[in-house]
Design a binder for these strands. Structure first.
Lengths: 104, 104
DNA sequence: ACAATATGAAACCTTTTGGTTTTATTTTGT
DNA sequence: ACAAAATAAAACCAAAAGGTTTCATATTGT
């Protein structure tokens, strides 16, 4: 069963994977070298990220290149966004400013 | 052991609780009436949210009022924010606009 | 051709998670 | 005073999560 994006980013290892591939696409072994766990463990996390669309796997010979594909994080951004008044009033001001510059 | 905010919002029930109390503070029983699970189950979720600072419990007689306290969501917003270019280029423009209006 | 490389997949294990039922405690209304 | 209400807390349980080891498969370099 495929997880939600919320569940996907709940795990620190997966967030680190996202950080790594967002910086530079790489294959599984390169990813693994950044962690102190076995390759199958990292592979599972990659699979989960792929399943929920946060990662794209490009088959290149015997290697699999992992590319960040993070537009689904928009769902998180949207959800958090509705509560922004709880921690940052300035963001409301920012929206006002955007509205006033609509015609730029 | 207290969970991370990322873990806290991974569960749909907890996100719903956040939605409910952000709209209006209420006690446990009022919360429970919104779910088809037992009160102890909801109470556990509330406890988790309280532990990671997303909920404030006000003791009022024999009741416990739950208030949203969502500034810790800023951590999520910040994390997601760094990847915004992956799903919405307009937000970069928004930042530019903000910069240009710095002295307003 | 074939050893080495990069990976997938299955079987297994332990801990965590999300739920339940049961019991106890504190506060309130009459 | 005392029954009802609101909750806390503990014991328990099944399923999911996160890891491991082991084995199989496809691709590459020499």
């Amino acid at each position: 069963m495929s997880k939600s994006v919320f569940q996907a980013i709940a795990d620190p290892t997966r967030r680190k994977i996202i950080g790594l591939v967002s910086n530079q696409s790489c294959n599984l072994n390169e990813l693994v070298s950044n962690f102190s766990m076995t390759r199958p463990a990292v592979a599972k996390h990659v699979k989960i990220l792929e399943d929920c669309g946060l990662l794209r796997i490009e088959k290149r010979g015997r290697e699999r290149y992992c590319h960040a594909q993070l537009h689904n994080l928009g769902e998180i951004a949207l959800w958090v966004h509705q509560y922004r008044r709880f921690w940052n009033d300035n963001l409301d001001r920012l929206e006002d400013i955007l509205r006033n510059n609509k015609d730029n």
